[in-house]
Simulated scan of single mutants.
Amino acid sequence: MIALQLIGIGTGNPDHLTREAVGVLNTADLILIPRKEHAADLADLRHAICAAVLTRTVPITEFDMPVRAGEGDYVQAVHAWHDAIAAAWRAAIEARLPGGGCVALLVWGDPSLYDSTLRIAARLPGMSVRVVPGITSVQALTAAHGIPLNALAGTVAITTGRLLRAQGWPPYAETLVVMLDGGCAFETLDPAGLCIWWGAFLGMSRQALDHGPLAEAGPRIAATRAALRARHGWIMDIYLLRKDQP
């Protein structure tokens, strides 16, 4: 029997792990770490987190992260991608734990928020699944800027860059948090009356922050984002938009 432990690890800082997460990692029989072709340092960061918190020797194995098809129907491509990831998990686990045991999988941020780890795990019948929550990038962003998530008695929506481009600002939201933005979807909005709080590589030594009226800060953020992506080969960022309060 395989017990799969999905551990939220925050945004790259070992201090983001909860005591529960540290305990689970130290009792695991195997730790799985994905490696992406163009973002190998994400795997290195996971290794560094393990090195910082493990108090006993736990076998660690990497697997190559499948690449999602960039053409065709988006939803179908994601389902096929998730099937491939589940197969990669199963192959890595069966190769290292043929008799079963406890497997820890390090999940960036938290497995519950705009993350598909739980949907992928559901493709592996016969495994028990436990979630160990972690600090989300939303929490890391608001903490870094020292701001509350919501305006006083205000509504909050969390969406993706793709949906913001396609659907615009949700009519019921006063505050909008945008995740998984492959570009700068905020550029599609009328900046009048909007402020932005942006962060990249939150919690890491390379953390970058900016904020201000969208009309002024937006171009700065777009330029900084492009420079960081060129320098590191990848970028992980998030931003919060808020309407001016009367």
Rank of each mutant, 00 (worst) to 15 (best):
T155M: 07
A226H: 10
D210C: 01
L32F: 10
V138S: 05
R130G: 14
Q76D: 15
I147N: 02
P125Y: 14
A95S: 15
D237P: 06
V178D: 02
R68G: 04
A39E: 12
L149E: 04
A226P: 06
M236S: 08
D44E: 01
A43L: 03
V78L: 15
T18E: 03
G161R: 09
F201N: 06
T61I: 08
A69F: 05
V53D: 00
H145Y: 06
E37I: 05
L97I: 13
G10T: 06
A95K: 14
V78H: 07
E37L: 10
R46N: 00
M65T: 04
R229I: 02
W81Q: 10
L42K: 05
Q207G: 08
R162Q: 15
L241G: 05
R90S: 09
A21C: 05
H38W: 04
F186D: 00
A69L: 07
R123N: 12
R119G: 14
A122M: 12
L17D: 07
A230P: 01
Q139E: 15
P213N: 04
L105S: 14
D115K: 12
T175I: 02
Q5P: 00
P34Y: 07
T18L: 00
W234R: 04
G100C: 09
H38R: 13
V107R: 10
A227K: 07
V129I: 14
F63D: 04
R19I: 15
L32S: 10
L106M: 15
T18S: 08
L45C: 05
G233C: 09
L106Q: 13
Y172T: 13
L45A: 01
G199A: 06
L4C: 11
I147L: 13
I196T: 05
A208V: 01
L240C: 06
N13R: 05
P34V: 00
R96S: 15
D15G: 14
A222R: 12
R229L: 03
M236N: 01
R220C: 09
I9P: 09
P14I: 07
I135R: 15
C195M: 09
L189D: 03
Y172S: 12
I9A: 09
L124F: 03
C50P: 01
A192W: 02
A77M: 04
E94P: 04
E37G: 03
A77F: 04
H16E: 08
P111Y: 07
T57E: 09
L113D: 11
A151E: 02
A153I: 08
Y239G: 00
A166C: 02
A40G: 10
Q167H: 14
R123F: 09
H211P: 01
D244Y: 03
P66M: 06
R46Q: 07
E20S: 02
Y74Q: 13
T27C: 09
R225K: 15
R225F: 07
H145W: 07
T117I: 12
L240I: 04
P111Q: 11
D181F: 05
K243L: 01
E71C: 11
I238F: 02
T175N: 08
S112V: 11
L4E: 09
L214I: 05
L240T: 04
Q245V: 03
I158P: 01
L124R: 12
Q5H: 10
I93A: 11
T160C: 12
L202K: 03
G193Q: 11
D64R: 11
M127T: 14
E94Q: 11
A21H: 02
G193D: 06
P219E: 12
R130I: 09
L32W: 09
H38F: 02
G101S: 13
E216G: 03
D73H: 03
A192C: 05
L54W: 03
R96K: 11
